[in-house]
Amino acid sequence: MNELISMGGYAPFIWSAYGFFFITIVILFFTNFLRLKKREEVLNKINNNRD
């Protein structure tokens, strides 16, 4: 386990690279997901008003 964390002395580089990668893609996913939900809400509201 310690070996995994220390990464043969390269820990700061590897963990910051992997961290940046995953944080960025998670942000990319959620911003788009929230935008989609907002569109769906607007559409539901329009449909409800119609009925």
């Binding site: 995994l4 990464m7 043969g8 002395g9 390269y10 580089f13 590897i14 690279a17 992997y18 990668f21």
Partner: peptide, 25 residues
């Protein structure tokens, strides 16, 4: 992918563990 790239694969004999960044780069 993380299991294989961080645990299962051996470190490079020149660059050591730092080449694991390749798997995302």
């Amino acid at each position: 992918g993380l299991y294989f790239s961080l645990l299962q694969s051996p470190p490079d004999y020149i660059q050591g563990d730092s080449m694991r960044i390749m798997y995302i780069h």
